[in-house]
């Protein structure tokens, strides 16, 4: 079997390689045509949306693995609930959300850890105001699965679907908080970097925050995406690409925690390239941008929100960063970010 015939980690890292893999293997043949206004597999959005009467039924699913399973600020259970709640929220679904939970456990997994994860799932569900309606549990032999895999599926209804392809030239780009927290927290928590710092993951369910933003912005919120794998860089590229527009990013305006920035400098990792699990990047029509920003900032999860850029027409699909010294194209990350020596 040649190298090309094996899947590599790069193809799961949220970048171009992953989109290509999904496009070639799954979308091809699986993606059924959808009615106008609906969102299907081929859209590669955060979830699917099907019109039912005058509302939309939105569904999304997400499998979760993380190392370490418990990290500062969260754990795999919180991640599994928040991840799916957030994918629904990005489509505009913030209330009456139902979740399902599938658990695959490796033989020998500590029961105490499983109970700790379950408690975390319960707490996060309560925080988000969502319920687990059904589930499935499998135990695999030693070595047949790596510890614990949690898969959550979420469904909910909404009056208006927000997609990740709605950016229009002139829109402002808003992020609801600091960038890079989760990715660098998990990297630092792996403990092999000899760093004496505790970065805290931002993993949190965002439906409450998104509700506040949608109440303030309504139709003026043109697109939403949660900058998870691949970070802000991947999210903005995908949004710009799908909308056929460009984004001008003001680097100085992007909120980054000082300790996250420091670890990034030490390891040669750009905080814009790593995952967030409790943040939204949205396009907002310029005339409503300040109002939405104020509403988001008034929410506990949106205190560090900022307007970080503007949507322009040219060049389509590109993200241009104004560094304060000059301009550059934001590079889309390829594969998991690794510490660099040069």
């Amino acid at each position: 079997m040649s190298v090309r015939e094996r899947i590599t980690l790069k193809q799961g890292a949220g970048g171009r390689a992953m989109r290509a893999l999904i496009g070639e293997v799954f979308v091809e043949g699986l993606a059924a045509p959808v009615a106008p206004g609906d969102v299907g597999l081929a859209d590669l959005d955060d979830g699917a949306a099907v019109r039912i009467g005058d509302r939309w039924l939105v569904a999304t699913t997400d499998a979760h693995v993380v190392h370490p399973r418990f990290f500062p600020g969260g754990d795999i259970g919180r991640l599994a609930v928040a991840g799916t709640v957030n994918d629904l929220a990005m489509m505009g679904v913030t209330d009456a959300v139902m979740l399902t939970l599938a658990v695959v456990i490796e033989e020998g997994f500590p029961r105490a850890d499983l109970e700790r994860v379950a408690a975390s799932i319960r707490a996060t569900c309560a925080e988000a105001g969502v319920r687990i309606m059904t589930g499935d549990t499998k135990v695999m032999g030693k070595g047949e699965v790596d510890g614990l895999v949690l898969t959550t599926t979420g469904v909910g209804l909404t009056d208006r679907v927000v997609t990740d392809r709605g950016l229009v030239a002139g829109d402002r780009i808003l992020v609801t908080g600091t960038m890079g927290d989760h990715g660098l927290a998990v990297l630092a928590a792996r403990g092999n970097l000899a760093l004496d710092v505790e970065l805290v993951s931002d993993v949190a369910p965002l439906n409450g925050l998104v509700r506040v933003a949608l109440d303030a912005g309504g139709d003026a919120i043109t697109a939403m995406k949660d900058p998870t794998r691949g970070g802000l860089a991947s999210a903005l590229h995908e949004m710009a690409d799908k909308a056929g527009v460009a984004v001008m990013l003001d680097e100085a305006a992007v909120p980054i925690r000082p300790d996250v920035r420091a670890v990034g400098e030490l390891l040669g990792i750009d905080p814009l390239h790593v995952a967030n699990e409790g943040k939204v990047v949205m396009g907002v029509r310029a005339d409503r941008a300040e109002a939405v920003l104020a509403a988001v900032r008034a929410h506990p999860l949106g205190r560090d929100a900022a307007l970080i850029g503007t949507v322009v027409a040219e060049p389509p699909g590109r993200v241009v960063v104004d560094t304060g010294f000059g301009r550059r194209l934001l590079v889309e990350p390829e594969g998991e970010p690794l510490p660099r020596i040069c």
Binding site: A246, M248, L249, D250, A252, A253, A306, L307, I308, G309, T310, V312, A313, E314, P315, R318, V320, D322, G326, R327, R328, L329, V331
Partner: peptide, 21 residues
């Protein structure tokens, strides 16, 4: 390869300060 040559970022339409809050 990624950007089809070296793009001229200086000539882009938007003013850099337009992005600033």
């Amino acid at each position: 390869h990624q950007y089809g040559g070296v793009p001229d970022l200086v000539q882009l339409g938007a003013r850099p300060d337009a992005a600033r809050a």
